[in-house]
Amino acid sequence: MSANPNGTAPASAPLLQVEAISCRFGGLLALDRVSLELAEGEIFGLIGPNGAGKTTLFNVISGLTRPSGGRCLWRGRPTTGLGACGINRLGIARTFQNLRLFESLSVRENVLVGLHHAARAPMVGALVGSGPFRGHQGRLEAQALELLALLELDALAQQRAGDLPYGDRRRLEIARALATAPRLLLLDEPAAGMNPAEKDDLRRLIGRIRDHFALTVLIIEHHVPLMMRLCQRLAVLNFGERIALGSPAEVRRDPRVIEAYLGGQT
């Protein structure tokens, strides 16, 4: 391990640093020099009105969109140019706001796809199905069932993912992301379309998952009361700009936040 270019020891660096990320689509500046830092173990919330650039920021962090400016650092090292696969392998997994499951595969297989790529099978024997390989397969199957049980999807393991109702799909997205053994989990509106009781269940579930896997969580959600209870810190985006950052109590009092959320109505 060599020291990184900034000369800071990786151990003391935050888990993820977003440094002045800008993202331009034609004439639209979807992100305008957005910066934030995630510390290991926290649940960090990202809120803001529709079209504020929240999903775009997720796309940049997870390597799906190349930013027009700025960079991200993972434990102090730039992630520039790694691509979605490379960034997942660093330990960043995400869910999609507009649900992108492998719909023709079963619930169990959706999770197995994630698991496969976290744990390489012994190459020798994989082709012929030798004893060690079958043992490896058995462990993956067990892990998949465990994850599905955690997300209360175990009863649906054999169903086609495309046939699931909406709420189950959202939880399967989380299960599939967790299967890749991430250190940082990005959740894009995991409670969208859920009723208040389901939202409450989901909030507890996210807390449980964080404790169980000792994860760091970055979550986008429109339901502000839920975010106030769930997150240790919040950032607020508005028209691509980060207008506030701090504890839920600080953010709630911030005049720019009040303006952004209520501005149109006064």
């Binding site: 997870s62 390597g63 799906l64 691509g83 979605a84 696969c85 960034i87 997942n88 392998r89 997994a93 995400r94 999609f96 992108r100 499951l101 492998f102 719909e103 023709s104 595969l105 796809v113 994630g114 790529h117 976290a118 599939r176 992301a177 299967a179 890749t180």
Partner: peptide
Amino acid sequence: RDDELAAASVGI
């Protein structure tokens, strides 16, 4: 085949 982008983001 189902979703290339989602496949990449689970590490494929």
